[in-house]
Structure formats: structure tokens, C-alpha cells
């Protein structure tokens, strides 16, 4: 019993890294995703944004993570620590997917919303900030929760560059004790609990939507 508890606590001490990577990744991903999706609506920005999204979606996340962690020092002259490299890699990768989610959300709005803003002479910045994005955020919220859950699960890749997250700790126990079942079940319990928590928070926020979508 003591062994189970100590294994449970050891694996659980990796939650901090997993959550930091997820939170940081979501922050970078949402910011980057919004910028990419708005830039897509400018004539000059569109081909550049399309190329960026194509590369980010077309190459493995592990490759991007390795690139940032191992290759960046020779370009910028200093090494990013594990957390910074992981957050950056997960965030940048996620921004491509979030940009696509935003694109779907923006395209689902009636064209008339843009035209109404234009007719009322609302400057472009305010049109995006106060008219378009608040409506888009509500439409894409369930898809965003999905993306956050996917990102949480993708953080296991941090183990590949030495990060001691939930998964890596479970593997360490498995190797040390020659037993896979228990540590993997413990890791699964943590991940599933976190996913349920994200889903629960998402539902709570979704239920607070205060207007019907169709006016």
C-alpha cells in the first residue's frame, strides 16, 4: 500500500510541469492563433500565414520541439530551458490549429456583421476586438476546449527532451520496479482527471453564455 501511495505521489509531482506547459502553450497558442487568423484577412499577410500554418501542421510536434530545444541555441546563441522550449513549441504548434478554429468561427459569422461595422464606420481594430472576436469566441468555445485537451495530452512529448512530467515519472517507476501496469494506471488517472477538470470548467463557462447565438 505504501508503495502505491509513494508511486502515486511521485507521478503526481509531475503535474506542475504538465500544467505549466499546457497553460503556457494555450496562452501562446490563443494569442498566436488570433493574430494568424486576423492577418489572414490582409492581402499581404494571407500567403505568409498560410505557409506558416502549413509548415506547423505538416511537421511532427516532436520535430518542432527538438528543433527549438537543440537547434535554436546555435542560431540565437543561448539555450532555452526545458520549460521555455516546451511552452514555445507547444504554443507555436497549437497556434496553427487554433488559427484554423478561429477561421472556421469567423467564417461562420454572417458577412453582414462585418458590413454593419463598416457601415457604422467602426475602425478595424475595434471591429475585431469588440464585434467579431467576442462572437467568434462563443462559437468556437467547444472546439477550443478540445484543443486544450489535445494540448494537455501532447505535453507528454516533453519527456523526449528530459522533462519529468507525469508520463516520464510513470516510466521511471516502471523501469525501476519492472512493473508497468501500476505506474501507467496512475499516469492515466492523473491525465483523465485533468481532462475531466478542463471539460468541467469548459461546461461551466459555456453555460454562462448570456445570449442566444442567432439574433
Amino acid at each position: 500500500m505504501n508503495k502505491i501511495i509513494s508511486n502515486f505521489l511521485y507521478v503526481g509531482s509531475g503535474i506542475g510541469l504538465t500544467l505549466k506547459l499546457t497553460f503556457g502553450g494555450v496562452c501562446i497558442g490563443v494569442t498566436g492563433g488570433i493574430l494568424l487568423s486576423i492577418l489572414r484577412y490582409s492581402t499581404i499577410g494571407k500567403p505568409i500565414v498560410n505557409a506558416i500554418i502549413s509548415i506547423l501542421r505538416g511537421t511532427p510536434l516532436l520535430l518542432q520541439l527538438s528543433f527549438i530545444y537543440f537547434i535554436t541555441p546555435s542560431i540565437v546563441g543561448f539555450r532555452l530551458d526545458l520549460l521555455a522550449a516546451g511552452t514555445l513549441a507547444f504554443g507555436v504548434n497549437s497556434s496553427a490549429y487554433i488559427a484554423e478554429i478561429f477561421r472556421a468561427g469567423i467564417e461562420s459569422l454572417p458577412k453582414g456583421q462585418f458590413e454593419a461595422a463598416q457601415t457604422l464606420e467602426i475602425p478595424r481594430f475595434y471591429m475585431w476586438k469588440d464585434i467579431i472576436l467576442p462572437q467568434v469566441m462563443i462559437n468556437i468555445f467547444p472546439a477550443m476546449i478540445n484543443e486544450i485537451i489535445a494540448l494537455l495530452k501532447e505535453t507528454v512529448l516533453i519527456a523526449m527532451i528530459g522533462g519529468m512530467d507525469i508520463m516520464r515519472r510513470a516510466q521511471t517507476i516502471a523501469v525501476e520496479q519492472y512493473e508497468y501496469f501500476m505506474p501507467l494506471c496512475i499516469a492515466g488517472t492523473y491525465y483523465y482527471g485533468l481532462v475531466l477538470l478542463i471539460g468541467f470548467i469548459g461546461k461551466k463557462i459555456e453555460n454562462r453564455k448570456f445570449y442566444a447565438k442567432n439574433s
Partner: peptide, 20 residues
Amino acid sequence: MFQDFQLFPHMTVLQNLIYA
């Protein structure tokens, strides 16, 4: 005035009027 009004659904009537 648009055929389908195109009011901003996330704003109240007052906010729709005074925003711009």
C-alpha cells in the same frame, strides 16, 4: 439598414446604439 438587421447579438440594444 440591412434586410436582416445585423444587430450585434452580444450587445444590448443600448450598446448596439452607442458603441460606434
